[in-house]
Nucleic acid binder design. Structure first.
Length: 322
DNA sequence: AAGAGATCCAACCGCTCAGTC
DNA sequence: GGACTGAGCGGTTGGATCTCT
């Protein structure tokens, strides 16, 4: 039996989302939370497939998403997780809370795969994507396998993180700088989000992610706008019942505001209310004082019993041993 | 300056899984 | 237990942008 389409083909809009659509979706989710995607198009009036709405939210509008500019740590982690898990991008993304599976998948396909192929051609095949293992037919099966292999995963991740030590600066000041850089890119506070990572190469790349730093005169309004919507969401959810699109809510004391510019000049000021991901299912974004992988590392080394990891990664109370 | 090719990424498609009746 | 439905996942594609010649 053929599965019926999730939505009628007629009258369903496709292609890039407009800022107006984004706002409608964001406003709806502010009020109702993500979920029940089937109802979203009808309730919002969006001429979009429910799947499209969900995808737009999870991959672009969801708060706490970091775009582009993959760090060496993230890169290494992705490579090793891919080797362990195969192309299970959602599972891999679960270890990188700020990244979407789509983002990781794209990054893998456009950067890492090629890198590894080049590395393999160069002789070393240690990082060979071993994930050409046959995909299991059942999520339950692979989750069980994952459970079974959890220690192997931890070991491999330790190797990944340890090998970073060869890349990373090793002096104290350099480590501090590294931590600061990571924090700068991770601690996307509403006020300063646009200025994150200004010194990284990728920040000046052509990717849409970096465009959030550009002025409207430098970029089209759309990318800037959606980036700001995403940023706006970083602070949205604390106040129940408040609608950001209304922009009428008074900000809580001391909160910062982010301005969302639309189209050719109409500007909607969105008051950011602080960071609370009320409806967020992924783990919360790490604070600016943490390195981006510390949560993973904490997990990674949770059941080990030695203690030189912090010397390597600058993360306190983390064990690290071989 | 302009055209061709390469690159990147947002979005779509089709499938499977899980929950409900 | 089977049918149905919603949600999620991974593969793929279309088009915008960048780079090279």
């Amino acid at each position: 039996m053929g599965r019926p389409p999730c939505c009628d083909k007629e009258g369903v809009k496709k292609g890039p989302w407009t800022p107006e659509e984004d706002l409608v979706l964001v406003s709806y989710i502010q009020d109702h939370g993500p979920g029940n995607w089937r109802a979203v198009p009808t309730r919002t009036g969006l001429m979009r497939c429910s799947k499209s709405c969900r995808l737009r939210w999870t991959n672009y509008l969801r708060p706490g998403i970091k775009r582009g500019n993959f760090s060496d740590q993230e890169e290494k982690l992705i490579v090793h997780l891919q080797a362990l898990l195969g192309n299970r991008w959602a599972a891999i993304a679960s270890y990188l809370p700020e990244r979407t599976d789509n983002d990781i998948k794209n990054y893998w396909n456009t950067h890492l795969k090629r890198k590894l192929q080049a590395a393999a051609a160069g002789g070393g095949d240690a990082a060979k994507p071993a994930a050409q293992r046959p995909a299991s037919s059942s999520k339950g099966q692979w989750e069980r396998r994952l459970q079974t292999d959890i220690n192997m995963a931890r070991r491999a991740l330790r190797e990944a993180l340890t090998s970073l030590d060869d890349i990373k600066p090793t002096t104290t000041t350099q480590q501090q700088q590294l931590t600061k850089d990571a924090a700068g890119s991770e601690g996307v506070t509403v006020a300063a989000a646009g200025a994150a990572d200004s010194d990284s190469p990728a920040a000046s790349s052509s990717s849409g992610a970096s465009l959030s730093q550009c002025s409207p005169s430098e970029t089209g309004p759309y990318v800037l706008t959606t980036a700001n919507i995403s940023r706006m969401l970083d602070g949205w959810a604390r106040k129940q019942g408040g609608r950001a699109s209304g922009a009428a809510d008074s900000p809580s004391s001391g909160s910062s505001a982010s301005e969302v510019s639309y189209g050719g000049g109409a500007t909607t000021t969105i008051r950011a209310l602080g960071s609370a991901y009320e409806y967020e299912r992924k783990p919360p974004v790490l604070g600016p004082e943490q390195t981006p992988l510390s949560a993973i590392e904490t997990w990674l080394f949770a059941d080990d019993s030695t203690s030189n990891a912090h010397a390597v990664l600058g993360v306190p109370s983390m064990d690290y041993h071989f």
